[in-house]
């Protein structure tokens, strides 16, 4: 093994140590499932490893791979949580704490489309601007705006308590 390869391997290990926690959180928000999130992170890192010698900003490249992979159709099919319709509206917990909000939000997130989830995660979890989000998702800014708008409206429809919470505060 050459000196160059050894060096690259060490750099990649450092990158993994630093970036995996962040990537995992974003992946979990995108997929809603720990196993799928882990799978997505490993797929992303494998891609980064292959392109390691050619990528100037590995962190940015990893995020781009993560989000584009998460919305690709074959992953969407595998990751989608099947929805079961019932005659009774499920009980809604009281939203007294952030944990309560998280429970309701997580349930609602599952019912968004992968692209809508990606837009919300980038805009409100990673605090990206619209242009950065558009670049990472490889789409236009107008698409980001419309997807954000649709996602928020869908969240309000799915969880009226979240909308009520917004008005209360």
């Amino acid at each position: 093994m050459t000196e160059h390869t050894n060096g690259a391997r060490g750099d990649f290990a450092d990158f993994v140590r630093v970036e995996v926690p962040t990537l995992t959180r974003a992946a979990y928000l995108m997929t809603g499932d720990r196993h799928h999130a882990e799978d997505l992170v490993q797929t992303t890192l494998a891609r980064v490893a292959v392109r390691w010698d050619h990528v100037d900003e590995p962190a940015a490249y990893a995020r781009r791979v993560l989000y584009t992979q998460s919305v690709s159709w074959w992953r969407r099919r595998a990751a989608r949580v099947s929805e079961t319709l019932t005659a009774r509206v499920p009980d809604q917990p009281r939203l007294d704490t952030d944990v309560d909000v998280a429970v309701v939000l997580e349930r609602a997130l599952h019912r968004l489309t992968p692209r809508q989830r990606a837009v919300l995660v980038l805009r409100f979890f990673e605090d990206r601007t619209e242009s950065e989000t558009a670049e990472l998702l490889n789409c236009r800014i107008g698409t980001v705006k419309s997807q954000t708008r649709h996602a928020l409206r869908r969240l309000r429809e799915l969880s009226p308590d979240l909308a009520q919470l917004e008005m209360d505060r």
């Binding site: 995992t24 992946a27 992170v41 490993q42 890192l45 490893a49 998280a102 409100f124 979240l162």
Partner: peptide, 27 residues
């Protein structure tokens, strides 16, 4: 609240396990 809620969800998740030799294996 959305931002706080997303962080609350994500912070519960432990970092993903990554195979030690992922670099060489992937390449």
């Amino acid at each position: 609240w959305l931002t706080r809620g997303l962080h609350a969800i994500a912070d519960r998740v432990p970092p993903a396990a990554v195979p030690e030799d992922l670099f060489n294996q992937a390449r």
